[in-house]
């Protein structure tokens, strides 16, 4: 089955990966996105050490957009099921912020769909990330327009 969720609790990667698996599938590709410690500023090239992250979501719209992404992925790729779980609230360095699992009869479609979904998620799902570092904080703004 497909699923899409927001949670303030730590995400169990394995439980997401196992929930998507139907009998006709032979491969699941799972992305584990987590909070990075060092971020290079795209404008200045300066490397900043993040202390922690805060994610905020426009929850009802984020869930609708996640659902649309899954529908769109299933119409474009030969895949069976997709699960997306995104965390919100405060995340420490190294903690998982997003898990995307794609189950498919064959691995190639699962890899391609997973890459497509994370790219689209970062462009369209209304969730924002704040980086908090020594001496400041800022809301990250996405690169691409929706």
């Amino acid at each position: 089955m497909d699923f899409f969720e927001l949670t303030t609790e730590p995400i169990s990667i394995e439980s997401v990966a196992r929930r998507v698996v139907p009998p006709e599938c032979g491969a699941t590709v799972t992305l584990d996105g987590y909070a990075r410690q060092y971020t290079k500023d795209k404008a200045t090239g300066e490397v900043r050490e993040t202390e922690y992250l805060e994610y905020e979501a426009y929850e009802p719209m984020a869930l609708k957009e996640m659902e649309k992404l899954i529908e769109a992925a299933k119409s474009q790729f030969e895949i069976s099921n997709v699960g997306i779980v995104h965390r919100v609230g405060r995340l420490e360095i190294g903690e998982t912020s997003v898990v995307i699992s794609v189950a498919a009869p064959h691995r190639r479609a699962a890899f391609e769909a997973c890459e497509w979904i994370i790219k689209e998620l970062k462009r369209t799902v209304p969730i924002w990330k704040k980086e908090v570092y020594a001496g400041g904080e800022h809301w990250v703004e996405g690169d691409a327009s929706a």
Partner: peptide, 25 residues
């Protein structure tokens, strides 16, 4: 809760959101 262009005619009770480019993931 649907992306909009800004040209939509609004009706009483609508829920609008205005936000910066998203940065989840």
């Amino acid at each position: 809760q649907q992306y909009a262009t800004g040209n939509e005619t609004l009706t009483d009770g609508d829920e609008i959101a205005i936000f910066a480019a998203v940065s989840g993931g």
